[in-house]
Amino acid sequence: MTHPNITDPARLNSATKYPSIRTHHALGERGALLEEPTRFTGQVIATEKVDGAGGRIVLLPGGDYAIGSREDLLHARGDRIINPTLGIVEALLPLAERLAELRTVHSGATTYFLEVYGDRIGKAANQYQSGGGVGHRLFDVAHTPDEILGLDPAAISTWRENGGQNWADEDILQDLAAHHAIPLTPRLATLAAQDLPESIEDMHTWLARTLPATLVALDDGARGGPEGIVLRDSTRSVISKARFQNYRRTLELRAAEAAAAAKR
């Protein structure tokens, strides 16, 4: 890569990874949720959580860029070898080229985080397509300053997992998506924090009512089952994920325990 401050791709990879997102209700033993919901204040934005492969486009000064999966960098501009993992590079390369030509990054790194989904990508591929289609949806954008790229890997990881990344807020994210014609993950609702369901059972009901089927199906033959919903405040200082599978499993375990107790 040509940026003089980027001498170690491992550091760039670590500094531009997506941090872990907590489950909306805390996760306990055996994969069961606890009655401990994430606390938000102000307005909460609910978006569809798409079940695919996390991809990223890392834009650098001078029109340089890299494309990565959730864990690894797979391609850099000008490379003759492209890692074919999950089809992420193939899916994102045209967009990366288009964004890089704009040369909007003058320092550090700006990372576009996208979910790549569809044909043979993960166990849920048939929920989104039946004819081999692949799509991508933007869900976040973050900027990493030059000084972070020079830290040692352990310090970079600590910085990333403790909210160090400079995230685009909802208004900026919407503007970027519209300006560059990048499809966003569907916006489902904006609600006051106090209106979020408190209990696990109520959250399960709310999920089913808010997102009965995926909104990002790629063809009419898709099965249409959604993965869940991501909740974030407008500044992205608090974020959590609510997956249907977690709530179903928790309620099934509770029902099984109640049935066992009734037999004693």
Rank of each mutant, 00 (worst) to 15 (best):
S237N: 13
Y247V: 00
I239T: 12
L60M: 12
W206S: 10
P183D: 07
G54V: 14
H143K: 06
R77A: 14
R56V: 06
Y18T: 03
R236S: 09
Y112M: 00
E29P: 00
D140R: 14
F244H: 10
P145R: 08
A66H: 13
V216G: 03
A177M: 05
I57H: 05
G135D: 00
P212T: 10
R103I: 12
T158L: 11
P197E: 04
T85H: 12
E71Y: 11
D152V: 13
R103A: 13
G78Y: 08
T2P: 02
I172V: 13
A177I: 07
N246C: 05
A255G: 04
D146G: 14
I182Q: 09
L149C: 07
A222Q: 05
A217E: 00
V116I: 10
E36H: 11
P61Q: 02
L211C: 10
A100K: 01
D72I: 06
S107E: 00
A26R: 15
R98M: 05
F40R: 15
S157N: 09
V216Y: 01
G28S: 08
T23F: 10
R70A: 12
P84G: 08
I182F: 05
I6W: 02
D64P: 03
A15C: 06
Q194W: 03
R56Q: 06
G118Q: 07
T41R: 10
E147Q: 11
Q127C: 06
H75E: 15
P183N: 09
G133W: 02
E257D: 13
E147A: 11
A15T: 10
G63Q: 05
W159M: 06
L95F: 02
G118Y: 00
V230F: 01
R160H: 06
T235N: 11
L231K: 14
T41K: 09
T235V: 07
S130Y: 00
H143F: 01
P145Q: 05
A109N: 08
L211M: 09
D140P: 03
V89P: 10
D169F: 00
A46P: 01
H204Y: 11
E227N: 08
